[in-house]
Amino acid sequence: MGKVRIKVLFFVLSVMVVLIGCSGNSTGSNEYVYELNFNIQSNTTHPFYTEAIEPWAKFVEEETDGKVKITVYSSSALGTLDTAYEDIKGGVYDIGYVSPMTNIDTDLFPLSIGDLPFAFTDSLDVMKVMEKYRDNFLTEMSDQAVWMTISSTDAYQIYSNEPIKTIEDLKNKKFRTEGPYNIDLVKHWNSVPVSINYVEMYEAMEKGTVDLTEYTSIGALGFKLEEVSKHLTKIDKNVAQLLFLMNGSAFNNLPEDIQKKFEEVLNPKLGELIGQLYHTQSADSIKTFEEKVKDKGGSVIIPSEEELKEFKKPSKEIWDKWVEEADKRGYQGQEMMDYFLETSEEEGISKPF
């Protein structure tokens, strides 16, 4: 009799363990729910979250009939952009985005061509060109990370307290910037590059550690740069590409039909939402900045075509250096550049020099 009781008790406990183990990952209809963590750098009031990431998370849940749930972690809660590529590959979180410009010493180097000065000015163009480009030249990406889509921020502008109308106005100015290409360009402009992370640029401008900074017009409002600068010089210097990736194991754990749904519907939708956000709101952000600084004598400065050519002129040397660097790394640098220029031209994008 004692043995029977023990068997019954063991059976009951086994059932309880199974039920407890399944409760957190099943719907009311007992269908398994795949929960994916999405780490972003912006806070929950930024348009990046409210108009792109949050709607996409809801779209995913609707399109998969609740089988996939996206949990968004804002304000770099699970990791910063500097370590994003390693974090995604290592499974610190399931979905995130990386900057090719800050990962040039990885297998993402081929994509850094899109971060060159004056290569792109519009986020929608990035997706059109770079999706084609990666099919040809990003052939060795780690299987620990799965390509979702690529987009970008809006274009970078110059923020300063003294008006910057021509390249001569930049001479000997302390210029906050990041990344090897941007540092090279600033040097060509006879400015003094100061490599400070964007999260510290408000304080750097406020304290006078730097004379000016570069940033996107949408992002600048988020950081309230109108409080520490009076002028915006619109030169559309470059964009910061955003490569969205999913952890390889997380992707492989999804059923084949859901994998296909991501590839054909969900990933393109994410790129579309990001692209549209930065494409449509840039002009309004510049106008808002102008309104906010008007009372303190601030302005938005738009250089003439001739003045803009002077800003762009040094970019040729930097693009040529990229080809040389690609060759050193074992790539066919000129072939990659030729394809990039040809594809860009097909999309109506002219080279800057």
Rank of each mutant, 00 (worst) to 15 (best):
N39P: 02
N267D: 11
Y181S: 06
Q144G: 15
K89L: 15
V228L: 04
K207S: 15
E131R: 10
L78W: 04
V15T: 09
E203S: 11
M201R: 13
F38H: 01
A155N: 10
G79W: 08
K165P: 04
D338N: 07
P110R: 02
F48T: 14
K287L: 10
V12K: 06
T64C: 07
P47H: 03
V92S: 11
K230H: 04
M16A: 15
D125I: 06
L232K: 09
D87A: 06
S74G: 14
T45N: 06
G66N: 11
E290Q: 13
N238I: 09
P303N: 10
F48N: 14
P163I: 02
W322E: 00
I302G: 08
Y32L: 14
G333M: 01
F175W: 00
G219I: 06
G90Q: 06
T106Y: 04
E206A: 12
K171C: 02
S75R: 06
E342C: 00
I95Y: 02
I40Q: 01
P352E: 03
V92K: 15
S304L: 02
T280G: 09
I196N: 11
S350G: 13
S344Q: 05
V12Y: 06
S195K: 11
G298R: 07
L111A: 07
V199W: 12
I40S: 03
M101A: 12
G66F: 09
K165D: 07
E317Y: 05
Y331L: 00
F311P: 02
V12D: 04
G348I: 00
A250E: 02
E140K: 13
G248L: 08
T27F: 14
L254K: 08
G297N: 02
L13Q: 11
S249N: 13
I183D: 08
S42G: 01
D87E: 13
N247W: 04
E203W: 09
P180N: 11
I40M: 09
K132N: 08
G114W: 03
F262H: 00
